[in-house]
């Protein structure tokens, strides 16, 4: 094995291990025990909070730009919001929002 191969195998192995570790930690912790009522509530409430945080995470780079560079994100998100809120059709909202964003990116 060359040095480069050992390096890449090492990186992939350690990152796979750590990623599996973080993903399986809650399952390992609660493999035998039942969730306490409070933890059960938390488990049910968390996804709704996490999804909001994930949206913020996707848009986080907006804080690095001036507001004028953020117009594509702002308009596209607004469009997704309006379509989903009004028509409750996930595919319509995502397709239109993404196309709107792509159009902006290509024009600017």
């Amino acid at each position: 094995m060359t040095k480069e191969m050992i390096y890449m195998v090492g990186i992939i192995a350690i990152c796979t291990f750590v990623t599996i570790l973080t993903r399986s930690l809650p399952f390992i912790c609660f493999s035998k025990r039942k969730l306490s009522p409070i933890m059960d509530h938390l488990a049910k409430a968390l996804p709704r909070a996490i999804m909001v945080i994930l949206v913020i995470y996707c848009l986080k780079d907006m804080t690095l730009n001036s507001w004028i560079d953020n117009i594509p994100e702002m308009i596209s998100c607004m469009l997704v919001f309006l379509l989903q809120y009004r028509y409750k059709n996930m595919y319509l909202a995502i397709v239109c929002g993404t196309l709107c964003y792509m159009l902006f990116i290509h024009i600017i």
Binding site: P47, R48, M51, V52, L54, V55, C58, L59, P72, E73, S76, C77, V80, F81, Q84, Y85, K88, M90, A93, I94, G97, T98, Y101, M102, F104, I105, H106
Partner: peptide
């Protein structure tokens, strides 16, 4: 370019649905 926005749009849709 920009098609990766579909993930953001999807997350946003899930938030609105919830």
């Amino acid at each position: 370019e920009g098609i990766e926005f579909s993930a953001t749009a999807f997350f946003l849709v899930v938030v609105i649905k919830q």
